[in-house]
Amino acid sequence: MSCKPMKKDESVSLAQHRRTFFTQAAAGVSLMALAPGVRLVELAMANSEDSLPSNDKRWGLLVDTAKCESGCDECVSACNSEHGLSGHGRPETDAQWIRKVDLKDEQTGHELSIPILCQHCEDPPCVDVCPTGASFRRADGIVLVDKHTCIGCRYCMMACPFQARSFIHEDLTGQKTHSPRGKGTVESCTLCVHRIDEDQEPACVEACREAGHDALVFGDLEDAAGPLASLSSKTATRELRPDLKLNTGVRYTSF
């Protein structure tokens, strides 16, 4: 578009000129705005299900400790088989993404049993401390390790208040296609992100339901009408290590 030096008798044509400019600019801007959208559509199509992870969602878990049975470890075995976490007979170095912990109130003697796993914090200390940014939080709140950039320094394991992470201490073979994992990197619960991306619930939640306990409720914390948020709003829930103000995505009720 050319701009000639303006003369007084050209004022009319200038208005026209300006209009043309705005029309063209608007077209340009909308094209720029649309182009990534078009790209997004293409990417979303590539995904087998509807949408990319977004800030509108925040996946979480609610553990009803009243329903969680001491001695039951269906969630743990479901996790192990889903992700191919086979032990090497060395409990100190074997991977553990979810574990059952028995609690006893030191004053009253009240006992309960809870699963502890990655709490998928809103402000995860593991993500803060990771030097390469391999520990990250996906837009929909799932805390993951990008094992392509993990250098195995284990600083995240120092920082995690829940001891939810494991370091892979040996060469592995026979990994699951959907759960790549290998020596020298750190890993933890992925909330079964491969299942969530295909609109399924995490393996532990499914196993708990199938075992007849139904102590784990999976859902979107931001969706007020959804199972997780509506249940959480009706009952007292707590997060582990509330002193750290991490706003965890995994919450506990009935204790």
């Binding site: 803060d128 401390v129 030097p131 950039t149 250098i151 320094c153």
Partner: peptide
């Protein structure tokens, strides 16, 4: 001692500036 010392180059090219480790590099 790193789990993946062969990825030292990653530590030199990917930085998370919220990490004191990255600052220390």
């Amino acid at each position: 001692d790193l789990g993946r010392p062969d990825r030292l180059i990653v530590a030199m090219t990917h930085y998370n500036f919220r990490s004191i480790f990255a600052w220390n590099i």
